[in-house]
């Protein structure tokens, strides 16, 4: 299995490492042609305005949307990646993929001083709470009918999925715990089974 990690800017190295540790091949995606042969995509945290703008300029938004519409292409967006996956963004809204039926807002917890980490219950993972790191994190304000909440914190949904798409407000790559990457890879595996 080969997973692309969008490598425009942000926590790319850590996602590559986690994906490899979870048992898949991981490749950097900078240009549309890099997507060839990938079974899924991870969009790391970073600055969503910067990432969205540069994705658009280098044709990545169109290329990824084409792929998503022609077959089931699993994508996991973390933090900035959640914003790039959201159909609607409240306030300043960057160029993005808009594939998931959610409304989201950027930096919704406040500036850096309000960033935090917390052991988070994620029932789908089973076992111990997940060490979740929230950095200038976004919030989900609305979920469409097909969207399922996977974790909540203080009443807000912070992890959700819709068909092949997965998003989290927090960063799963900032601890040693690889369970969320494993969860995503299982999703990719199942969908690949359906495709073939």
């Amino acid at each position: 299995m080969k997973i692309g990690v969008l490598a425009i800017q942000g926590d790319v190295r850590e996602h590559l490492r986690h994906t490899q540790r979870a048992g898949a091949e991981a490749v950097e995606i900078r240009l549309p042609r890099d997507l060839d042969g990938t079974d899924g995509l991870i969009i790391p945290g970073g600055e969503s305005t910067t990432i969205g703008m540069l994705m658009e300029e280098y044709g990545l938004i169109q290329a990824i949307r084409d792929r998503a519409f022609s077959s089931s292409y699993p994508i996991y967006g973390t933090c900035a990646g959640l914003i790039l996956m959201a159909k609607n963004v409240i306030g300043k809204s960057p160029a993005r993929l808009g594939l998931m039926d959610i409304d989201a807002s950027r930096n919704a917890y406040g500036r850096q001083i309000a960033s935090f980490e917390v052991p988070l219950e994620v029932p789908a993972l089973g076992g111990a709470p997940f060490p979740a790191v929230f950095i200038r994190a976004p919030k989900i304000h609305r979920m469409g009918d097909g969207v399922t909440a996977l974790a909540t914190y203080n009443g807000d949904v912070v992890m959700a999925e819709q068909g092949p798409y997965l998003v989290s407000s927090f960063h799963p790559e900032m601890s040693e715990d690889i369970r969320i990457h494993q969860y995503f890879l299982e999703k990719v595996d199942k969908l690949a089974g359906v495709r073939h």
Binding site: A7, I8, Q9, G10, D11, V12, R13, E14, G45, G46, E47, T50, C79, A80, Q112, I113, A114, S115, F116, E117, V118, P119, L120, E121, P129, V133, I135, R136, Y153, H171, M174, S175
Partner: peptide, 22 residues
């Protein structure tokens, strides 16, 4: 669930998000 702010993880984490940028 106890939320912790200003941890070293959270501090260095923001810098990690800026990587590759200007």
């Amino acid at each position: 669930m106890q939320e912790q702010r200003g941890t070293y993880n959270v501090k260095s984490g923001l810098a990690e998000m800026l990587k590759g940028g200007v």
